[in-house]
Design a protein around this nucleic acid. Structure first.
Lengths: 140, 140
DNA sequence: GAAGATATCGCAACTCCCTGCAATAGCGCC
DNA sequence: GGCGCTATTGCAGGGAGTTGCGATATCTTC
């Protein structure tokens, strides 16, 4: 297991909780929430404290095994780092989420690098705004 | 007072709490937080419930009097709508915030409109990433 | 295989924000 | 000016996420 080695290399330890969380992440199709993970583990009979889950997701993010993104609500979404990265458009009126390929966002990232030396992660937070349908409804 | 009229026109009422919050916003230099407002009013001897502040900020946002943005922490920042709008770059390593003019973000907004019919508000959420200094430090 | 160092866990408490509900207070109208 | 309608308030409670701390478990070393 690669992650296990990476962990130990940094003086970390492989605990049962960590293993279970890793397992839940591996099983997750797309993105998960901390609550999803807790619920899933609870269903299997393991009761793991929420703070343990949050702390472990942070550690796993440090190891580059997962990343997180924020849509326009207050729930953090977690993804395995091996999934293909993409941006999100979230409609503030109807809540619709649209995925957009990173390619569409890259020109801005390039510009921000050139002008500000800033390595932007445009997949980290959703872009909020108003989707086509809602715009039509509003203006009518 | 324009806002007061806009409020009443929609069947709203001008309460003492509303007036105080409006006053605090007028006094705020740049951006404020709900907590700032509560603290400021408390200092003047007015104790207003936090939920009242949140609800009022929401109402005022509906009237177009204020807007809010999310930097990369969990605290919502509120601005008067008459302030000039700008984007934010937030470094996930050192926390540094850089303001960027909307002009720098507009090409992406235009692209998202053309391709997805999505009216993006690129000032709503900060762009997170790694600033120049931190990038230099990391790679050394 | 046991011991020691310390990373990690669970718990409790806290922060920011949101929501339901009963009580209150603005507003429009007579 | 008083009355009734109902928007708004404060309070209590809840959800997501974070933090400090003492107890525990994992890893390293002998």
């Amino acid at each position: 297991m690669k992650i296990e080695d990476a962990l130990r290399q940094r003086g970390g330890r492989m605990t049962m909780q960590r293993r279970l969380i890793l397992d839940a992440l591996a099983r997750a199709r797309h993105h998960t929430t901390a609550d999803d993970i807790q619920r899933q583990l609870r269903a299997k009979g393991f009761e793991i404290d929420a703070s343990t889950i949050y702390r472990n997701l942070e550690v796993l993010e440090g190891l580059g095994h997962v990343t997180h993104t924020h849509l326009d609500d207050r729930v953090t979404r977690w993804h395995r780092a091996d999934e293909e990265r993409h941006g999100h458009l979230v409609c503030t009126v109807c809540g619709a989420e649209t995925e957009v390929p990173m390619a569409a966002l890259r020109p801005l990232a390039r510009r921000l690098m050139e002008r500000y030396g800033f390595a932007a992660d445009l997949a980290h937070a959703a872009v909020s705004g108003i989707c086509e349908q809602c715009r039509v409804v509003q203006s009518s």
